[in-house]
Design a protein around this nucleic acid. Structure first.
Length: 263
DNA sequence: ACGCTTCCCTGGAGGC
DNA sequence: TGCCTCCAGGGAAGCG
């Protein structure tokens, strides 16, 4: 479930391992994942270059390949990166692999093939064309802009939070986490929220996403909902009961006893 | 324009 | 043990 915190961890990992090494060969096995780029174009743009830096927006990771353009990676729900030496065990389901000089590899693995691999020459132009909203952790996204982003939305709050054109980076798991932290019901109507509820949501969004990154994603604090996403589980905040419902075709977990705010 | 539903993808879990 | 169905959840497409 790579959402904003997971992709941030991938970015940090890539920055710490895979930069400034000449790409000698590019392996592509990405049927269904390539977005607006052919395997041969991808190979020709990356071979002979080096990765120079990276940038994340929402769940998208952009990797600067200099003159080759920006490699765009989206991880769907099963994607991840692995950097390993020639003698190390390669991961399963490798869809893209960069082979560096010096016998190291960077692999993009994605079992379920949900996700995207693309090549763009202007990241900002891509973000605009894809109609992505502001990144949820962008320091420029303050409570006033958050309120504006929510304005005019009539659907279920949880669906609004997951809408990438409203705010980029929040998926099913963190939408639940944010609502849990803020004490708001997932089916609250977005346009019915009181100002203080919007403020609580904004604070919960920043807090939950930052804490998840700090926890390095695998190791969730016990007061998070994530380790308790099971119908009937005990709420780690109030001792109440976690319920599972469906909201806009997606599973939603929430605490029946403290997520009572609907306005 | 928006929101809800359906579909795609694959493997693991659970029922029989 | 094997087979079947269901479920996960990212985004796109379809529909009203």
């Amino acid at each position: 479930m790579p959402e904003l915190p997971d992709v941030q961890v991938f970015e940090d990992y890539l920055d710490q391992t895979a930069l400034h090494q000449r790409i000698e060969h590019v392996y592509v096995s990405a049927k269904g994942l390539l977005d607006d780029v052919s395997a041969s174009t991808l190979r020709s743009h990356l071979t002979g270059r080096a990765l120079e830096g990276s940038r994340r927006h929402g769940k998208h990771l952009f990797v600067d390949a200099g003159e080759g353009g920006w490699l765009r990676l989206h991880f769907g729900m099963t994607g991840y990166l692995r950097y390993y030496a020639q003698d190390g065990a390669p991961p399963d389901h490798v869809r893209l692999r960069l082979d560096f000089a010096g016998d190291h590899h960077l692999a993009y693995s994605n079992t379920r093939r949900m996700g995207q691999i693309g090549l763009v020459d202007d990241v900002d132009a891509y973000l605009e064309a894809a109609r992505l909203g502001p990144d949820a952790l962008d320091p420029e996204l303050d409570v006033a802009r958050f309120r504006e982003a929510l304005a005019g939305r009539s659907g279920a709050l949880k669906s609004t939070l997951m809408n990438q054109s409203v705010v980029a980076g929040i998926g099913n798991v963190y939408a639940d986490e944010i609502l849990f932290d803020a004490g708001v019901h997932p089916e609250a109507k977005t346009d019915a929220l009181r100002a203080e509820t919007v403020e609580a949501l904004f604070g919960a969004m920043k807090r939950a996403l930052r804490r998840a990154i700090e926890a390095r994603v695998e190791d969730f604090p016990d007061d998070f909902l994530v380790p308790h996403r099971r119908d009937g589980a005990e709420c780690p905040r109030c001792g109440g009961t976690v319920k599972k419902i469906e909201v806009s075709g997606r599973s939603a977990y929430y605490c029946r006893d403290h997520q009572t705010a609907r306005r």
